[in-house]
């Protein structure tokens, strides 16, 4: 189960310079969160205190303490996408998402000339209008 995967991740990165961030990233991807139990195991493996590991986990927006099982749609709401009208799409997006889909605000996906833009997994979407975003959320 999870314990074995965590060992794999640790084994893959131990000995690398600055191994903590790559480990946390892989843990977040594998489990959808960095749980207190993972924090403890990572701290032990890297010879750090749990507080140190917890402090790092808490600093970065991409690491979550608890897994949210819902599909996630990231919507860019930074300046250039605002200039292209993303704010007008938000209430419709929230209605489409309901409780089923997790909407997350991100700041810039590097598609600032063709926004509003969104990301689902590693797939990027641009030139979204209300209808396009709704379909994206419903398919998530």
């Amino acid at each position: 189960m999870a314990g074995a995967d965590l060992d794999d991740i640790l084994a893959r990165h131990l000995g690398r310079e600055g191994a903590l961030l790559p480990i946390l990233r892989d843990v977040q991807v594998a489990f959808g969160c960095v749980s207190p139990a993972s924090e403890a195991a990572i701290a032990l493996a890297l010879n750090l205190s749990r507080a140190e590991v917890h402090g790092v986990v808490g600093f970065y927006h991409d690491f979550a303490a608890e897994r949210d099982p819902r599909p996630e749609v990231q919507i860019c709401r930074a300046e250039a996408c605002q200039a292209r009208g993303v704010e007008a799409l938000i209430s419709g997006a929230q209605a489409a998402a309901g409780e089923r889909v997790l909407l997350r605000t991100v700041y810039c996906l590097g598609l600032c000339s063709v926004g509003p833009s969104a990301r689902v997994g590693d797939a990027l979407h641009a030139r979204l209008d209300a209808e396009g975003l709704r379909r994206l959320i419903e398919a998530a």
Partner: peptide, 11 residues
Amino acid sequence: DEGDSGTFADR
């Protein structure tokens, strides 16, 4: 890290 909104040249 190119975090600035409105930039994409690094990407």
